[in-house]
């Protein structure tokens, strides 16, 4: 993508400098994959490899959860972020999984991500934060913004053209459609989806909000969870995962993208977002580090239904 040519050059130069000067011990970015339509995660520690870095409209992966690999390590890592990815970094900072000293965030302008066939991803059409919500440095003229905003920087025009954010108002469409169904239909729909789950935990492992050191699903011997991939145990996993990220999910859509069984995980995350807003007021997770997530605080005059 020609708009991003200079950004790519700048990324490589910056990564090289950061590694050479010892400012950071490693850099998270992307490289071109085995097809022109694939751009895959890359971690480099060697300045000589900086030229492999690449960024374009296929760089869909959110790399923020990979920072968890270094949470016990004091060295700094640099990470390149799109708008949605930056919210993942805020998630980790707010959850105190990493400290600001451990990460150097470099914001990039986002052209809107497309699938291999070239159509804009749903999450990008529905995107409200195409600009980084925090960054130590930016490339490509992108502006840091903690408000829902239009794309900025060198790809602003391209992003507008493909429709980034154009369907932000319809984010809850899938939720509304399911809410309109009868209880029996809902039960059947989710049973079918939960039955598919193979418990590969890709959704959990890619997620910046799923950052527990000891996940309940890795502590099977305690008898709370079952490794069996039965309808019952799969539903237990799906609902537990959803409740654990409720109010903390940064809406990056990675869980649904990586699910090999195409389970509509975002529909559940969105349902929770919608209810949280209705019950406890507007909230965007992973935007402002100083605002505690809604399930971690309360108001004495919250809605009362349990009298």
């Amino acid at each position: 993508m020609k708009e991003l040519h200079n950004v790519n050059v700048a990324m490589r130069t910056l990564a090289r400098e950061l590694l050479e000067s010892g400012t950071v011990a490693g850099v998270y970015g992307w490289k071109k994959g085995s097809r022109p339509t694939l751009t895959s995660p890359l971690y480099i520690q060697d300045a000589a490899k900086a030229d492999r870095l690449a960024y374009d409209q296929y760089a869909v992966s959110n790399l923020s959860a990979l920072l968890l690999d270094h949470r016990n390590n004091d060295k700094k890592r640099a990470i390149f972020v799109k708008g949605c990815d930056s919210r993942g970094v805020v998630r980790l900072l707010q959850d105190q999984q990493i400290t600001p000293e451990q990460v150097l965030v470099i914001g990039l302008p986002c052209p809107g991500m497309v699938d291999e066939a070239g159509s804009l991803l749903t999450k990008c059409a529905e995107c409200r934060f195409p600009n980084p919500v925090m960054a130590d440095q930016v490339l490509g003229g992108v502006e840091v913004s903690k408000q829902p905003s239009a794309p900025t920087g060198v790809t602003a025009e391209a992003a507008r053209k493909v429709g980034v954010g154009s369907r932000a108002g319809e984010r809850m469409a899938q939720v509304a459609q399911l809410e309109g169904k009868t209880a029996a239909e809902k039960e059947a729909y989710w049973a079918e989806q939960h039955d598919k789950c193979i418990r590969c935990y890709a959704c959990r492992n890619v997620c910046p909000a799923c950052n527990c050191r000891d996940c309940i699903f890795d502590t099977e011997k305690k008898g709370w969870v079952s490794k069996a991939a039965t309808s019952s145990a799969n539903a237990f996993f799906a609902i537990t995962r959803a409740m654990h990220v409720a109010g903390r999910c940064v809406d990056c859509g990675e869980c649904e993208r990586v699910c090999p069984m195409d389970i509509p995980i975002m529909t559940v995350n969105r349902k929770l977002q919608q209810d949280i807003e209705a019950l406890f007021g507007p909230y965007d997770a992973g935007v402002d580090e100083t605002v505690v997530p809604p399930l971690g605080r309360y108001q004495t005059d919250d809605p009362e239904e349990f009298l």
């Binding site: 490693g26 895959s40 995660p41 890359l42 971690y43 790399l63 959860a65 990979l66 690999d69 193979i198 418990r199 590969c200 935990y201 890709a202 959990r204 492992n205 890619v206 099977e220 079952s226 490794k227 069996a228 990586v258 090999p260």
Partner: peptide, 22 residues
């Protein structure tokens, strides 16, 4: 470095055969 240590590759693989007894 970028692997998530998930089970997508092995669970989808037709030849992977590891199991747990629980």
């Amino acid at each position: 470095a970028t692997c998530l240590n998930c089970g997508a590759c092995t669970f989808l693989c037709p030849t992977c055969h590891c199991f747990d007894l629980t």
